[in-house]
Every structure is written in structure tokens, then in C-alpha cells.
Design a protein around this nucleic acid. Structure first.
Length: 423
RNA sequence: GGUGAGGUGGGUGAGUGGCUAAAACCAGUAGUUUGCUAAACUGCCGUACGGGUUAAACUGUACCGAGGGUUCGAAUCCCUCCUUCACCGCCA
């Protein structure tokens, strides 16, 4: 979440930037500042009285020691009066603090200066394109047919076991998942990311810290008996490793990677958007996360974009990188680059990665800080990206590399898969 | 799931009602000294929200797993929860 001081010191600029995200309640900023003023005033009042209570209580102890009972009793009644006057103040403070928090979490992150204006995916800016779009042989088919042909994924049985959108991978299909996870993790750890296997369910505090709550409550599966949420991405548990910590400067930058299944309810989609592996409720993904000093976060963002780009190049897939416009960006992000691969048989672009800088938005919720050179405690910046989300990579690999003799896998996967062709 | 013992500052660890933001030691840091990749000594060394200051200094409040309660006063007593460890049960 945003810091009140930022709102207070740059009110006009904040409102301007919120408008780029199509946030339609700019007056909320003023309300928050007013609430914070109120909060300060109440606290000052409270502290003054509490201070008298504390001092007098000490005094009572001394008086008792000296056997001055009457004086002590008189002091006690003073304290009782002060304490009575503290009660309503305490209630008001709790109320104001709650209001403040409830409101400030409604503000999305501010978009960075480079974020293009716009409302829909059409307004995103294509930054780079790469790879060659294959010319498919006659009779080529989409991945959902290939999956059947090579007996790789059984959606019907997955639906029987759980429901639609829960694929059952099988045989070569299952092995390809394992292959990709292994390759992606190796690629990330070679670049200095430390590998983790996090819990796949998180508590409320963790979901709040990375911004899934309260904004995206309905998109997560909720295990109500224990009040746990199934993770929609490894970003949630892994970033939360550093919740409520003051990191030592020499530990920076923190680079982490993790494989996890991801669970998303994805309400409201239909048609060919959800056909085959295009959009499912459970999928596998390898994530990269960095927590860095604020001054370096944009350089790190560029590194991460390059890292993912090279990974896609190694898979020899046609891709493009988009800088998302204000209206299409996530709530918590300051800037986001989406990676899409071109699925040749469907003839459509599929999003396979999204790399974002959250600046201090998550770290402020998480209270993740460090001490800078001057000894001041400051918020760190957090970033993350997928490298990569598997199902759409699989869809694209299958469609783009189909031949009469089977699916030709890119060179880098041969040793992992133990073969170069899926037959 | 049952029983028992714990959860204190970066770490170890003292502290059973006021003299404790909290001993001591270690680590860290600044400095002094000794003719040298080290030792000794001295100071500093938690976080948050306020006040104060150009910035400091200084200063108020809260925080000893979390939340309640008792009390003039709680790290210390009581209750609930979370969690760690040990043993038992169950189990991949």
C-alpha cells in the first residue's frame, strides 16, 4: 500500500497518476490525509494523558513505600479519572486507524512514468518482438487436438476427479511438465536465484501482504475450515519470507525462485479463451522474485525482463514483450511487462509471463525494510516475474513444432526430456 | 490428536508486580592505545507512531509470540489462541 506521507507530500501528482490507472475516487486521497491528521491529534492527546498516568503510578509506588497511604489513595483517584478519560480516546483511535487502513488499501499502486495511458489490452505498447513464427504444414491442428493425439493430457478425467480446468497430465504430457520445471529452475539458479519450495497454502496475513487480499479475494480458493488460501502464484508465499523483517544491506539483492502449482478460480471466462490449456484453474509455474534497494529496482527490472526473454529465446518460440497500459496493469504494480508467445495453430498470442516492479507497495504492507548507508530504515522494493508459466508454453511448443513425425522439442530440452521428439 | 516444557533485543541468555527498553556475554559499529592481517580498553548499538530540530540533540507513547483480563502499576499474575521442542498415538 502507499505511504500516507507520499500522499501528503505529493497530493496533486498522486491524483494524476492514479487517474492513469483509472482510479475514480481521487477524493479518497484527501480523506485519507484528513484521517491521518485526526489520528495524530488523537494520539498526541492520548499520549499526554497516558504520560501523567505513568508518572503518577510511579509516584504511588514511592508513597506506598514511605507509608503515606492517604497521599497514595488521592493519587489513585487521579489516575482513575485520567484512565476514564482515556477510554473514549482509545475507542476513537481504534476506529480512525481502522478507517485509515480500510481506505488506504483501496488505493492501487502508482504507475511509473513510462506506463502508457490507456484502458484496454489494445493500448499496451509492444516493446520488442523476437523469434520466428513457423509456417505450419497443411493439416496442422491446435494443441488440444495434439494433446489427444499423443495422449498427454486428459481433461475429461481431470474434470471427473475435480472439475473443469483441472487437467490430468499423463505419460509424455506429465514428463514434459517435469522437464520444463526442471529446466526453468536450473536456468534461474544459474543466474543466481536461490531455489525454494514454499507452502502451497497461505494465511490471511500473507495474502494481504502481497496484495491478493482484500482486492482479489474471489479469485483465490479458500479453505475456510482453517482460513487458508491456495496460492495463485508462488509470489505470495515466497515474497512473504521477508514479511516483518529488516534485511541486512549486505544480503541485498535477494533473488529467489520457486516452482509451485498455482490455483485460480478465474471466474467469468468462456469460449476459446479457456479451450485446452489456454486457461485452467490449476497450473504449474516457476517464479522469480527479487527484493532490492529502491535505487536499483528499475535496473533490476530490466535484468529480469532480459532474463525471461533469453529463456524464451532458448525455447525458440516467437514472442513479444508488452508494456502494459495503466488500465490493464495489476492493482499492486508500478510497471508491468507481459510476455506473450504466438501459438501458431490457434493464431493467437498467449501470455506466459508477467514481470513487474511493485516498488514499495508490497514491502510497505509487509514491513520489509533495510538500513541504508546513513543508518535510516527504509522500505525495500519488490519485483517478480514468471519464468515461466507452463501450460501456454506447452500449448505453443506443441502447436509450433508439430510435424508429421511428431513434436520436435527445442535443443535445450533434449537432455532433460531424454528425447528430442514426442511421438 | 494426547501429555509435558518453552516462546524476551541480530545471536546466546537473565529477569515472578514498581529501581527494566529490559542484566551479562557474543556479534556489529565508532574511537583510543600498542611498531604492524591481532589484542586490550572506551562509547554507541531494537522497532513503530508522535513532538522537536535545517539536520541532530532531546522528548512522549506503545511493543518482551498474538489478543483479552486483573492492578494505581504487568516481560513478570489470570484466560484464549498461535507456534517451537520432547515423548506418545496415528500416518505418506
Amino acid at each position: 500500500m502507499l505511504q500516507v506521507n507520499v500522499l501528503r507530500n505529493n497530493t496533486a501528482d498522486v491524483k494524476k497518476r492514479l487517474a492513469i490507472k483509472h482510479f475514480n475516487q481521487p477524493e479518497l486521497v484527501d480523506t485519507i490525509i484528513a484521517l491521518d491528521d485526526n489520528r495524530k491529534r488523537l494520539q498526541a492527546e492520548f499520549d499526554t494523558i497516558q504520560s501523567k498516568v505513568n508518572a503518577t503510578s510511579k509516584e504511588i509506588g514511592k508513597l506506598m513505600g514511605q507509608g503515606k497511604k492517604e497521599a497514595a489513595e488521592a493519587a489513585k483517584s487521579d489516575v482513575a479519572n485520567w484512565k476514564a478519560s482515556l477510554e473514549p480516546l482509545k475507542e476513537q483511535m481504534a476506529k480512525v486507524e481502522k478507517q485509515l487502513l480500510d481506505m488506504i488499501v483501496l488505493l492501487p499502486n502508482l504507475p511509473a512514468a513510462e506506463v502508457p495511458e490507456g484502458r484496454t489490452p489494445e493500448d499496451n505498447v509492444i516493446v520488442r518482438e523476437g523469434g520466428d513464427t513457423p509456417i505450419l504444414p497443411a493439416g496442422s491442428v491446435p494443441h488440444w487436438d495434439l494433446i489427444k493425439q499423443y495422449d498427454m493430457v486428459d481433461f475429461e478425467t481431470g474434470a471427473k476427479i475435480t472439475g473443469s480446468g483441472f487437467p490430468l497430465y499423463k505419460g509424455k504430457g506429465a514428463k514434459l511438465q517435469r522437464t520444463l520445471v526442471q529446466y526453468f529452475l536450473d536456468y534461474n539458479t544459474a543466474a543466481g536465484y536461490t531455489e525454494y519450495i514454499p507452502p502451497f497454502m497461505v494465511n490471511e496475513a500473507s495474502a494481504f501482504a502481497t496484495g491478493q487480499l482484500p482486492d482479489k479475494e474471489g479469485q483465490m480458493y479458500h479453505a475456510t475450515a482453517d482460513n487458508f488460501y491456495l496460492i495463485p502464484t508462488a509470489e505470495v508465499p515466497v515474497t512473504n519470507i521477508y514479511r516483518d523483517t529488516i534485511v541486512k544491506a549486505e544480503e541485498l539483492p535477494i533473488k529467489m525462485t520457486a516452482y509451485s502449482p498455482c490455483f485460480r478460480r478465474e471466474a467469468g471466462s468462456f469460449g476459446k479463451d479457456v479451450r485446452g490449456l489456454n486457461r485452467v484453474h490449476q497450473f504449474d509455474k516457476v517464479e522469480i522474485i527479487q527484493i532490492v534497494e529502491p535505487e536499483t529496482s528499475y535496473a533490476v527490472l530490466d535484468q529480469m525482463v532480459l532474463h525471461v526473454e533469453k529463456l524464451l529465446q532458448s525455447l525458440q518460440l516467437p514472442y513479444r514483450i508488452l508494456r502494459l497500459c495503466g488500465g490493464d496493469m495489476g492493482f499492486t504494480s508500478a510497471i508491468t511487462y507481459d510476455f506473450e508467445v504466438f501459438s501458431a495453430a490457434q493464431e493467437r498470442w498467449l501470455e506466459v509471463s508477467s514481470v513487474s516492479n511493485f516498488e514499495g507497495y508490497q514491502t510497505n504492507r509487509m514491513k520489509c525494510r533495510y538500513k541504508d548507508a546513513s543508518g535510516k530504515t527504509r522500505l525495500l522494493h519488490s519485483l517478480n516475474g514468471s519464468s515461466l508459466a507452463l501450460p501456454r508454453i506447452v500449448a505453443c511448443l506443441l502447436e509450433n513444432n508439430q510435424t508429421a513425425d511428431g513434436i520436435l522439442l527445442p535443443q535445450v530440452l533434449h537432455s532433460y526430456f531424454g528425447a528430442g521428439v514426442i511421438k
